[in-house]
Structure formats: C-alpha cells, structure tokens
Design a protein around this nucleic acid. Structure first.
Length: 421
RNA sequence: GCGGAAUUGGUGAAGUGGUUAACACGCCGGAUUGUGGCUCCGGUACGCGUGGGUUCGAUCCCCACAUUUCGCCCCA
C-alpha cells in the first residue's frame, strides 16, 4: 500500500466539514474588517524566505523544502505566509495604491521539514493577515482584535492573549546586549540548549523549559525596561486601545518571537487547556518594520499574524465546541425497476436545480435498504417511485418525520416541498 | 537532529510460539415476494505495519526500517 508522506494528512469526512466551516467564519470576519484575500505561489525563489528570516537559527538550514527546478532555479516551498505576501506587495507596487494601508489575508498550505507531532505537520494550513503601510499602534490593536475575535466567533474561549514589545531596533539591540551580559556570567549552570542559544538567539533563552525556575532566569532583564521613550509610549498606547475594545490580555515579557525581523508589538494567543499538549500556541504574530526593505522594497511598516488550522481543530475538540454542520438532506428518491430509475434520474436533477439537497439509490439495493439509507442521511422527505404513480404523473412523498404519505403531481412537487419544508 | 511509547479487519479492540485469529460496532443479504429504523438468522481479515533473522513451525522471540504518538530542539 502506498502511504501518504510523513507529516501530511488527508482532509476528509467530519474534519473537512469543520475546516469548511472555519473557512466560512474566517472569510466572513475578514470581510467585516475589510481585509482583502491574496494568494501567492506555493513556491518562491529560495531567496524570498531566506532573506526574510535572516540567517538566524536552524530554520533556513534544515527546515525548508528547497529544490531546484528543471531550469536550474533555486526554489522553496513556502514555509510561512508573510514573506510571499511581502514579495507580492513589492512586486505589484501595492505601496502605490490610493487606498492605504493595504490589508491582506491569506489561507494556504505551508511546508516545513520538521519532526511531526500533534498539531505540527510538514504540510499544514495557515490563515494569516498582513497590514502594510501603517505604523500606528492603532492598527496593531486591530490586528490583535481580529485574531482574538476569530476564536471568540469559533467558540474557543479558553485562551489567553499574550503581548509584549521588543521596541525599535535601538531598544532591541540594547536589550539583547543586556541579556547576553546577564546570562554570560553563569551560563555554565544552564542547559546545553541555552548555552547554544546564548550565541545564536539569546532572546529565546527566556522561554526555555528546562531552566525556567533558575534564579538567573527570574531576575533576567525585561524587554520592557529597555524600551526607549518612543517605544514605551507605543506599547502604552497599544494597551489602551486593547482595553477600549474589551480584549483581555496579559503583558508577558517572555514572549519573544524567534526571528530577527520583529520589533515593537509581538503577541501570541495560547490555548489554556492543561491536556492540550506542547503545541499550544494557536496564533502568533507581530510587527515587522524593516522586512519590506529587506526584500528590496521601499521602507514600509508592517504587522501580521498567522493561525494554524490543525491546532484550531484540536482546540475546537478540546473545548467541546459543536461546529454547526448540516448532515441532513432534503429528499431521498427511492426506486426499484428501470422505468422508475429513469424517472429518479430526471427527478433528482430537477429537485437539485430547484435548490433541494437530494440523494437517490446508486447500488440497486432493496427498497428496504433504501429506506435505511434515507434514515441515515436524515432525509426530510422520501419519495418512493412506483410505475403506476408515474403513469399518472404522480409520486408518493413521505414526510420522514410524521411518516405520512401523500401522492403529489410531479409538476407540483417543487411547490409542495417548498411549502412543507 | 535527540529520547520514550505504539503498530492486529471499514472501526473499537481480545489473544496465543503450532489445526478454522475472540467479541462488539459497522456494512451486505434474508425472515418481511415494494415501505425501513426493533428483533432474529447468515455473510464479512490478500491474515496480525514492512523487510530480514531465530525455530520443525511465528501475529506472538530478535534486528532493521517505516509510520503514528508523547516530549526535546526549532517555531516564520
């Protein structure tokens, strides 16, 4: 048997219906916020992603699907949404539009070569938004509210919004320096990973799971203490705006995003269920002033977030949310002989074109089985075809709830069903 | 990339080094010769993840690999 590649999954059945529902919710809320749908290619020039994340960490080295096409081009399957969207923003000169800022959302499959575990796949579905061309914390608050309200709308309530500010480049560099200084003195008492992190990505030491209870960790410098005047004011403003919208959040100085391009606002929405597993961040994002320039565009501020479907599905499960899924049909058309079968074919087409969800028998089974099937489909009506009725241009319509049967002229059928539905 | 656990039919699963691999659900058919949902009866595993090995003989023992899963790392 040929199996699916490691870390991929087939979406079908109940989950497929849930995903369709989530898509509807996302599209609806984005419409209200007036964000515009954008789709970019599944693969981009490798440079797009490598440039955007910088050379930090293991990401570029071992977690992207890089390949060369037959023309010798270096390409990469998109591991995230932001870089491709920003590339498109630049290439299509969206910075020149008369309507600013540019507010975009995407909903695509992403690819990362990682060790799979629950809530983490190699091919996965991310939804995200990017706002380009606005530097006001006002928009930061809007973006966070959008992320927050998605979960509210979906009925996922057991969540926490964590926010933090990394400040501008100056603040960030000062902080980073202070952090390295602070940890350097006792780095040999810390875990191997942290010793490595000190060199590669010192901010990440803060969310180490091994050393989190060490004294040196608790009295580590806080990002917020290193914000310069301007950065601190922005962060203050952001909190005021969130308060105005009644969004509950927590200032968590340990929220540091992994990548260099983040500055000022960063945030995560995490699932609070104890049994949720290690991959509990449902949604994460931040401000990335400077990224557009990195990708050779004009100096443009940006902010965005992304949300993983796989985890949202798990969250819906954990929260016991009953996703509204319509599993019932309107009409089942049953028949036995060939003449009736032809009528059935005509009839279901007619009913479907008139807006009824309609099923019929495909496997030539007994009438008894067809009734069973109609029940399983939770059909509101069952039409039983009968040669004699057909000669009179009639069909027998049974209300599958009351079990009452009535003969109805075929020409009147649509009206009859409309009236009783 | 590192460590632990798991892998039996469409599903949930029991089980043993040796003839026909429990049980339940589901599915199909019949009792009910065109009216079901209850009941009863019958049917339903290219054979126990893949490949090797040990053995007279392995689904059950050993090894490797794959996949899943729980963590670590990383997290755009």
């Amino acid at each position: 048997m040929i199996a699916k590649p490691k870390g991929t999954y087939d979406l079908y059945g109940e989950d497929a219906k849930k995903v369709a529902y989530i898509n509807d919710v996302l599209a609806a809320i984005c419409e209200k916020y007036n964000y515009e749908f954008i789709r970019t290619p599944v693969f981009e020039a490798t440079e797009v992603f490598h440039r955007s994340v910088g050379d930090a960490s293991d990401i570029v080295r071992k977690e992207t699907y890089d390949f060369e096409d037959r023309g010798g081009r270096e390409l990469t399957l998109r591991p995230e949404g932001t870089a491709g969207v920003v590339r498109s923003y630049i290439e299509n000169k969206m910075y020149g539009r008369d309507l600013q800022p540019v507010k975009l959302y995407y909903n695509e499959m992403m690819y990362r070569y990682e060790r799979p575990q629950q809530g983490r796949m190699r091919e996965f579905n991310q939804f995200g938004v990017e706002v380009l061309g606005c530097d006001d914390p006002f928009i930061d608050a809007e973006v966070i509210s959008l992320a927050y309200n998605i979960f509210k709308l979906l009925g996922i309530n057991n969540i926490r919004v964590n926010i933090n500010s990394l400040g501008d480049r100056e603040s960030r560099d000062n902080y980073r320096e202070a952090l390295v200084k602070h940890f350097s003195k006792d780095i040999d008492k810390m875990c191997e990973d942290c010793q490595e992190r000190l060199k590669k990505n010192p901010l990440r030491i803060l969310d180490c799971k091994v050393d989190k209870d060490l004294e040196i960790m608790k009295n580590a410098p806080k990002t917020l203490d290193y914000l310069n005047e301007e950065s601190a004011q922005r962060f203050q403003k952001l909190q005021e705006y969130l308060d105005l919208m009644d969004i509950t959040y927590e200032v968590n100085p340990n929220i540091v995003r992994g990548l260099d391009y983040y500055n000022h606002t960063v945030f995560e929405i995490e699932m609070l269920n104890e049994e949720f597993g290690a991959q509990n961040v449902l949604s994460a994002g931040g401000r990335y002033n400077g990224l557009v320039e990195n990708l050779q565009g004009p100096e443009t501020p940006g902010i965005g977030f992304a949300m993983g479907f796989e985890r949202v599905l798990l969250a819906l499960e954990a929260e016991g949310v009953n996703v509204p899924i319509n599993n019932s049909i309107d009409v089942f058309v049953g028949y036995v002989n060939d003449e009736e079968k032809e009528t059935a074919l005509y009839l279901v087409q007619d009913l479907r074109l008139n807006g009824f969800i309609c099923e019929t028998e495909y496997l030539g089974r007994s009438l008894k089985s067809q009734f069973k099937t109609a029940d399983k489909l939770q059909s509101k009506y069952v039409i039983i075809l009968n040669s004699d009725d057909i000669k009179n241009f009639e069909v027998k319509v049974r209300d599958n709830k009351t079990k009452e049967e009535e003969n109805v002229k075929i020409n009147d059928l649509v009206d009859y069903l409309d009236m009783n539905m």
